[in-house]
Computed example of a mutant assay.
Amino acid sequence: MSSHLQHSSQLYQKEWNFANPSPCVFHLTEPTLWKTVTQTEVHMQGRLLGGCIDVIRHLVGTPYGDLKHFQKHFLRDEPILWYFENCELKTADLRRSLVQLKLAGWFDHCSGILFGRSPANQPVQDYTAEDVYHDLSAELHIPIVYDIDCGHVPPQVTLINGAFAEVTVKENKGTIRQTFLP
């Protein structure tokens, strides 16, 4: 058994500027703050599962989206610790996608959800991504952490689907320990 510990970054890149190329690969200029819905310390653990919600949402109702079977036969009913990053969904689309996942039972036996930073999180009539996270946390009664180093803006931590993960967020800094079984 081996494990890997990763820490939240100090700075992140707010956006890509493709129209103005530079000799630098990354432009890490913004302070990284991992946030929790409760604005308190959070500790959660479970089997990591997730990725780009723009793609994952289309698996609901297909043979590849049978989470009950997957959890029973492969995770042996261990809790899932979801992580999502958003490429292009506005907040209303993000909310609808999360409601679909919830109604399909994808958040049953869920220990928490991690959301990556995303420039796509544009408000729709003052409904923000933070509102989406608060609503989902209240409905599911689970911790939600957002603006983590995951998604379409650098830097990103490496998250391995199926790894057992322990996540701690304290004072806007986070750690993720992933444990891999032989």
Rank of each mutant, 00 (worst) to 15 (best):
H73C: 03
V99L: 15
R117F: 14
D126R: 09
D131P: 02
L81P: 00
I144T: 05
V145M: 07
G105R: 01
D108C: 04
E78V: 04
V132K: 06
L67N: 12
K90A: 07
T62D: 14
K68V: 09
T91G: 07
D147S: 13
V145L: 06
A104N: 15
I148W: 04
F115T: 02
G151E: 07
Q71P: 02
S118K: 00
R117T: 12
Y83I: 06
I144R: 07
I113R: 07
L114G: 01
L103D: 14
D126Q: 10
Y127S: 01
A104Y: 14
P63W: 05
L81E: 03
Q122P: 02
Q100P: 13
Y83L: 05
C87M: 10
Y133S: 02
N121A: 10
K68S: 10
A138W: 13
I144S: 00
R96Q: 15
S137P: 06
P79E: 02
I148V: 15
L94C: 07
S97T: 14
L67P: 04
A138S: 15
L75Y: 07
H73Q: 09
E139G: 09
S118M: 08
L89G: 04
Y83S: 00
G105F: 03
S118D: 11
D149A: 12
D77R: 10
D135P: 01
H73T: 10
V145G: 04
V124D: 08
H109E: 04
H69Q: 13
A92P: 02
L136C: 15
D126F: 08
Q71L: 00
L89E: 10
G116W: 01
A104H: 15
L101C: 11
Q122V: 11
L114K: 04
T91H: 06
D108Y: 06
Y64F: 14
G112F: 01
K90E: 08
E130T: 12
I113H: 00
S111T: 03
H109S: 03
D77N: 11
R76C: 09
P143Q: 00
L94S: 04
P79S: 00
P63L: 12
L67D: 11
K102I: 11
L98D: 12
V124R: 02
K102Y: 15
F107P: 01
D149G: 05
E130V: 11
E130C: 09
P79L: 01
D147Q: 13
H134M: 15
G151I: 00
